[in-house]
Design a binder for these strands. Structure first.
Lengths: 262, 262
DNA sequence: CAGTGGTCTAGACCACTGC
DNA sequence: CAGTGGTCTAGACCACTGT
């Protein structure tokens, strides 16, 4: 095993109050920030770091785990620890549900992804009637059962979000909305054809760390939060006609909104 | 040291492929989710868990660190590991910059916090001229120097966000905007008095794990992401007159927006 | 003071990767 | 196969909390 290139990393300050594993993490973080390790580059192995700093392996592993929890690095078993590359970011514009974006044969996700040069996929498409939850009922009105449409979106094979739409049965049952493929323009186009002209959407945005099942579904690296978005669609009569609950890999998205100054 | 109450936690499955520390984390997570440990309650100590499961201390600590990185628990030195209580959430409405919310003597943050029964504070108020960054210049136009207003917001003594506003010098220099206290209605009211009638705001939302200095400034617990919000204010002539860069503790906020169906 | 978590060591064996 | 990270042990000493 070769020694580290001289000057790549510094030395520890034994007089410092800062824990040794934090000092090591600080040095690696600084080296990453300054570009001495590029995106996707391999960090020194645990063995190299234990040698360089003269500490035990657990101390080094502690330092590396800090970087991972910060989202700066990710470990690959048998290969090494690498600087996390930033995935291409999907920008969600505030006009993404405007009517003019609905007159296509393909879904908005597909159109947009292909325009950006990515390969879009949608899987796990489950459409069925379900019992409503208190959360959904509060937003949708007091429906006991709802039509649920669940799906996961991927770009170039990487899962980026999964979503569940809920609609009142009296609106959706027996319509194309209850079909796996609701047709061009998606369910919003069908809602309007059914007489529910859409007026506006309310959107709530939260961020948090993912639960284990969300890590699995989105194949999230450690240190990547999720954006949790709950959107309610209202028709021109003021009725909530759909609630969409979406969980997105936070490193793959930026949300853009336009606010009125009134 | 007392043994754990029987039935509070289960036993390990030695035939499972799942690592022991993950199994322990799973059990604790399930117990928290099912309410067997309330918000703010103390989890079993490391010693109790090593006894209960018959594993070494590092294994238990590994399990507990998972829960912390998920934001479910936080350790307090000398006291124990506790189920993380959810702080009161501030809801930012999409009309929060509407003109009608500006005709008060106090800042919007102060008014809203007091209405919610919290004690608001603003500190670290730094107002000065700074060199612009490429990021700011791209949004604001090519100003070399800008007026920067930096401050941190606290609720009941807890930091919840810090923000920096940047304004072109040709607009802000020598005006009340360059004063620490810009007066009633804040800088948006002053901008309008100076002839820059506000038209709309563009807002970009991202979520990520905090950098170490952000952890310090917001006193963030492990496993709490930040919401990074960049807002650009435009006047009726289409000029960008302010860029506000805000970093918020994600567990203290929900952002609400209204989208047009056009 | 006893009990708690924070740091660190020096090993061991395993599973995965790539040559 | 050698090199890598993943898991786990059995200790040690320290710093902080509360009584």
């Amino acid at each position: 095993m070769a020694a580290l290139p001289p000057g790549l990393l510094g030395t520890l300050d034994p007089t410092s109050d800062r824990a040794v594993f934090r000092q090591i993490a600080d040095q690696l973080r600084e080296a990453i920030d300054k570009g001495r390790f590029a995106e996707g580059a391999k960090l020194p192995s645990e063995a190299e770091l234990t040698d360089h700093f003269g500490v035990s392996r657990m101390t080094v592993r502690n330092a590396l785990s800090i970087l991972q929890s910060e989202g700066l690095a990710s470990a690959e078993h048998g290969r090494g620890v690498f600087v996390r590359p930033r995935p291409p970011v999907r920008r969600l514009a505030s006009d993404r549900f405007a009517r003019r974006h609905r007159d296509q044969g393909k879904s908005a996700f597909t159109v947009e992804a292909e325009a950006a040069g990515s390969r879009p996929e949608v899987d796990n498409l489950v459409v069925r009637e379900e019992r409503s939850t208190p959360e959904i009922s509060a937003r949708l009105g007091s429906a006991r059962k709802v039509l649920a449409r669940r799906r996961r979106y991927l770009l170039d094979g990487k899962p980026v979000e999964f979503a569940a739409s809920f609609l009142p049965l009296d609106i959706a049952r027996g319509t194309p909305i209850a079909e796996p493929n609701p047709g061009p323009g998606g369910i919003y186009a069908r809602l309007e054809e059914l007489g529910h002209r859409l007026d506006h959407f309310d959107e709530e945005v939260r961020a948090r760390m993912p639960a284990p099942d969300e890590v699995k579904t989105l194949r999230l690296a450690p240190g990547v939060p999720v954006i949790h978005l709950v959107r309610t669609a209202f028709d021109t009569e003021g009725r909530a006609v759909e609630v969409c609950d979406t969980v997105m890999a936070a490193d793959a998205y930026v949300l853009a909104y336009q606010l009125p100054a009134t």
